[in-house]
Amino acid sequence: MTSPEPIITIENVNKYFGQLKALSEVSLQVRPGEKVVIIGPSGSGKSTLLRTINRLEEIDSGRIIVDGLDVMDDKNDINRIRMEVGMVFQRFNLFPHKTVLGNLTLAPMKLRKIERAAAEANGRRLLQKVGIEEKAAVYPARLSGGQQQRVAIARALAMNPKIMLFDEPTSALDPEMIGEVLDVMVNLAREGMTMVVVTHEMGFAREVADMVVFMDQGQILETGPPEHFFQDCRHPRARKFLSQIL
């Protein structure tokens, strides 16, 4: 069986923050429908790597191809690439001046030129999917962290992206709210969405990931399916990290 062409290709990427080497010769491929979970200690470069995929971070060398387009090539309209790549942030970053539904309809109406009625219908469908359709008319400040993050996921989905990036989506949440967000992500994974997730939730990685990527000090030290990774990973730093976190 031949596996399909990768939808994300990261090749020999290097990035510096001043003197600090944030990413070092990082290469990674993600195929359509695949779920990749990136783990590693804080400061290991995992969020930086995720953010290079939609060019929220620039890179110093290497190549990143998303959906057939070179992200770093200024001939390609980065905004068109980003429309196909949804992103969920640690701090939610909902638009506070828009209602929940307004958060979901803004980009589809302005960027995809979808009629308000259609955008709102789709928005309500997505809110139902993440389990908060009753909050459509509420402003984000009135929602709990877990609810805000579910809205943020729905907002990204409203653009009908091909890929979803998650940057520590549960790290800013109170423990009792983590489950509701993870549930939404698990469902999304089951529907076949291509996902790249930076997280500390090992349970999620074990349940959902097709591939676990371990990073430390800007390098990818180990990749593999979760059963392999959690059972018998070889790299000592990965083992140390696992023993600390599990």
């Binding site: 929220l56 905004n79 980003r82 429309m83 992103m87 942030f89 970053n93 960027l111 990204a156 653009m159």
Partner: peptide, 27 residues
Amino acid sequence: IDKGQMEAARSLGFNRTQTMFYVILPQ
């Protein structure tokens, strides 16, 4: 205005000008 607002809008595909007028200035 929090930097995250700019990032969230840009990640959806808004360019800088659109982000300014739809997201940053209204706040």
